[in-house]
Simulated scan of single mutants.
Amino acid sequence: MSMEDRIVIVGAGQAAVSCAARLRTLSSGCSINLIGDEPYLPYQRPPLSKAFLTGELSVERLALKPRDWYDAQAIGLKTASPVSRIDRRERLVILEDGEQLPYDKLVLATGSRPRVLPESLTRNASRIYTLRGIADAEMLKGELLPGRRLLVVGGGYVGLEFAASAAKAGLQVVLVEAAERILGRVAASETADYFRELHRSHGVEIRENVGVLAICDTEGARRASLSNGEQIDADFVVVGIGAIANDRLALECGLETRNGVLVNENGQTSDPLIFAAGDCATLLGEAVTARIESVQNAIEQGDAVAHSLLGQIAPPRKTPWFWSDQFDAKLQIAGINSGFDRTEVKAGTRVGAQSIWYYAGETLIAVDAINDPVTYMTVRRILDARMSTSK
């Protein structure tokens, strides 16, 4: 890489900061510009549905790095600067305010956005929220008043985490899941059974196999009509039904996309000068899953792309891992459970702890460890060892 190489990173989340930080440790010569569309320093998102929402964590403590770190590392940081388009021929990133940033290599770390309910179901309703950024969480903080009624739509991890935070704050919570059960796409029925019982023990009402037909405002509340014939009144509604990759910029400039920006094992897109990392990136040819939404994946992909930008070999990939905090339960997940054909439930190493082990045939592929960090670390080491020997 020449001293004059200009690298622009579009996005200001975990993958973007990971990439920028690694780039600077590997090269003091390249110029690095990081562009975010939000008016905040790059920040961590997982606490938004938990500690930040409940007031235990401030905006300042969400920041991934302090402001002076970017200056010290000679990393240009532009916040509140949405990107309008990418001109691949001229190698320009064009901001909505008209500013043009030239690049020699470009990284897309644009993340994902929440799915929303169809407008046809909600056009006559207000106070329906999704949770992705600080602005969303700040608005929701004002809604979390004891005694209020909340409807959560979606029984994945985000919906369950928000329901738990709201119940702890003294709200009456009803959660509806259109699929047969909560956590249907991401966990075995045994894990779902544990968290269903946990939520119900804290007063959360859960309706499964129940869809939302319409939500409308009525006499100061929101009234939701459900597919089981029930009507539920709520002061506000939170929707957690999955996320969509932010791949508009890639699509509009002609890069290949498929549920995200398609990348090879080096993070390279169909344009050899453009790379992608994090929630927006879909790994081409991945056997188990195409797009992984997790902090760990964003950090590792950002780090790997930094090496690729410099023509270096990235460190070996590690076992994907995730976590979820709900009430007094800490769920730690190691591995990807796609393709499992059986599970085993095992008692944990301390009272109230348990783990669900996923197998494909005789091969252990993942674990859900609930209040059981010893089992989580044991399985993670097993899976890491297997990944390192399978290269």
Rank of each mutant, 00 (worst) to 15 (best):
C30E: 01
K391A: 09
R317G: 14
R222I: 05
I292N: 00
L117N: 13
A224T: 09
G154L: 13
A15F: 00
Y129I: 12
L283P: 03
A329G: 01
F340H: 11
G159E: 07
I356E: 10
Q301W: 01
R181G: 10
P46K: 12
V158I: 15
I182F: 14
D325P: 01
V295Q: 01
I336N: 10
Y194T: 08
E190P: 10
G36Q: 02
L23A: 09
A167Q: 10
V107T: 04
T375E: 14
N371K: 07
T191A: 02
T378K: 15
Q301S: 13
S338H: 15
L262H: 08
D279C: 04
Y157A: 10
E38F: 00
L57I: 14
Y376A: 10
W321G: 00
Y157Q: 04
K141F: 08
G352L: 15
G240S: 08
E197Y: 07
E300F: 05
R342S: 13
R113C: 00
G203M: 07
C280H: 02
A188Y: 04
I370R: 09
T79M: 12
S58C: 09
V83C: 03
F162I: 15
R380G: 02
G335Q: 06
G240I: 03
V305S: 00
R91H: 14
E205R: 11
G211P: 11
K168E: 15
P46N: 13
W321K: 00
G240P: 09
V238R: 02
I215S: 08
A277H: 00
E293W: 01
V238L: 15
Y43G: 04
P320N: 09
E90M: 13
G147N: 03
A164K: 06
R200P: 08
L41V: 00
V345A: 13
N371T: 11
C216L: 14
P114N: 07
A51Q: 15
L108W: 01
S84C: 11
R185S: 12
A369N: 07
Y157M: 13
S201K: 11
N297P: 08
A137M: 06
S58R: 07
A163D: 05
A179R: 12
D193N: 10
L117C: 10
P102K: 05
S58E: 09
A243R: 12
A15W: 00
S388F: 13
G147R: 03
E56T: 12
Y358F: 13
M1F: 14
A366T: 07
F195L: 06
E300D: 14
L106H: 05
H202P: 02
T110H: 05
